[in-house]
Write a protein that binds this DNA or RNA. Structure first.
Lengths: 331, 331
DNA sequence: TTGTATGCGTTATCAA
DNA sequence: TTGATAACGCATACAA
């Protein structure tokens, strides 16, 4: 049996209540008793059982982070950002992964809620039923969404419109004339990046051409190869591609270009999205839009803690982060 | 207030004990009572509070995963592997990151233990004090180590010696004469890979030459550039480099080679370690040693569950995984 | 088959 | 300043 508050009490000759008060720094404990108790605690190597504590306090000191997969760059970096702000708090992180199965989602959230598994949630790139959010709000369990906007709770996200605008503008300013776009086939992000692309074209008097857009489903290397093939076939004069689907796909584009004898950046300029580690290592280096994901994760955590402490209201509010264009040789 | 077992009991007109037995599928509950209780549970949207349950059962249903950082390929892939086996179990993952601070390590483990935060631990690439492990064993809290061997508990790891042997042998079989090595300056892994390299040399009658070895500290791209510079300076006739420090460093080597006009693989053959995503995209493609990290993570989880269930003994035992050589154009 | 009583480890409310 | 007692939500041994 591990040592409990009772063992300490017995050893010192006080009651568990007194020990508890010492542990919780109650001011109304005599110096002498405090010292005795503290000594016994150290002596017997006592640590409070957080479950017992949670039960009576109605708090778990756990923050749940929910995502489809944690083995993605985005989720991982977010967790890293959250982690970095975790130090010096009493909170722990519990990871819930839906494994990409949409039906899991609301079930999982429901369980976290009803089984009281966390004091607050950070939900990454997932939606939530409105009624379920209402239940969380009613009980005062705060939620911060990342990259998805859900009415009634704060969201931390990136300015995708701006990022796409910057990329497109970069092409225009370097005199590219026919700018292709490779982009995800659905989702809030894809819509926003599409919007940024179109806005830039419009602002500079470029026509929008459906034929210059390739949609991808999986954001893979192969998606990039396939898309480029398809785009050059339709548009022999295309001299730039903005791969809003991400750097991995952009690298597929570059690879395919090499196979087809298309020179980068002379014949074709390429810009990706994400600035993954390897984008700096490709040849030529990939120009891309970088997002400070970890920083955004930290912010999500801070907002959540603010909500838990009552200093930040439980309401719709969007905290957005600026993208940055990283110029390398592909452009 | 959220609904508890008492509310259900009151509504159905039984005692909480009866409700509890229904929830736990006790066979000695009449069909009729069971149905009534189940109906009420559904009706009132009752979910058992896991804290109450944990307190009485002495189980948390949490698995702690401890690593220095989760933002590394290795930790990430491990988590992915663990995640994939988590489904259909009642367990959740809690991530503890020491953030690379060694002093955090034992403190953190101690807290997990004394505060009873997890039913079992998976410790990735970290050591542990022997006495602390003894405490865990005494209380029956299982630990599985990944990539580190600690006396008294099972370890899941890769055959680094074999991986390094395969790489070196590949050079020898393709008639390379002077084989350089770039390797981490400390750690169990580095030692093992060094051993594999030396064993292969010896088996084929090659001399071991200290001057052909470069030690790196950070496993970075720059480490690769610097190391190659240093190696070719000392060994103008070197015609192969095994970069046991990993693919990122190997890519640095290839980049530096290009700058110096060294042709790969004609003048210099290169083999990396890890098979990161981009290794397939370099030019030429990087030959490398691949480790099934996610699979190893799954296995670590299975071993841990086996220990929790008592089907696997709590003792030193090494489960090793085979590396695989992925041959591309750099060789 | 169900109810009663008790305990898990801690904190909080009161009384002393 | 400290002690006695109850409570958090649930599970279990035992009695009925």
């Amino acid at each position: 049996m591990r040592v409990t508050i009772k063992d300490i009490a017995k050893k010192v000759g006080v009651t568990p209540a007194t020990v508890s008060m010492v542990i919780n720094n109650s001011p109304k404990i005599s110096q002498r008793t405090r010292e005795l108790v503290l000594a016994a605690i150290k002596d017997m190597n006592y640590h409070p059982n957080y479950i017992g504590r949670s039960l009576v306090k109605g708090k778990t000191n756990n923050i749940a982070v929910v995502a489809s997969f944690f083995a993605s760059l985005f989720a991982l970096e977010s967790v890293r950002g959250i982690e970095s702000n975790l130090r010096n708090t009493q909170y722990n992180l519990i990871l819930y992964s839906t494994r990409g199965i949409e039906e899991n989602e609301n079930d999982m959230l429901r369980r976290i809620f009803y089984e009281r598994r966390a004091d607050g949630l950070i939900i990454i790139s997932l939606k939530m039923q409105k009624e379920l959010l209402e239940e969380f709000k009613k009980e005062g369990i705060p939620i911060v969404f990342v990259e998805e906007i859900v009415e009634g709770a704060p969201t931390v996200k990136f300015k995708n419109i701006k990022g796409a605008y910057m990329a497109t503008e970069q092409f225009i300013k370097t005199n590219r004339k026919k700018i292709g776009l490779i982009i995800g086939e659905s989702g809030q992000n894809a819509e926003e990046r599409m919007k940024g692309y179109r806005e830039a074209l419009e602002d500079y008097g470029y026509p929008y051409d459906e034929g210059l857009v390739a949609r991808v489903a999986n954001y893979t290397f192969e998606d990039g190869e396939k898309s480029l093939k398809q785009l050059v076939k339709k548009n022999p004069k295309m001299d730039a591609v903005f791969c809003a689907a991400g750097d991995v796909t952009a690298i597929g584009v570059m690879d395919e270009a090499k196979d087809e004898g298309i020179k980068i950046p002379d014949d074709l300029a390429v810009i990706g999205y994400d600035d993954i580690y390897i984008s700096n290592l490709t040849n030529p280096g990939l120009t891309t839009i970088r997002q400070p994901i970890a920083q955004m994760g930290s912010q999500a955590f801070d907002v959540l803690i603010g909500m838990i402490n009552g200093t930040i209201p439980y309401e719709s509010k969007i905290v957005s982060f600026e993208p940055e264009i990283i110029i390398r040789e592909s452009v």
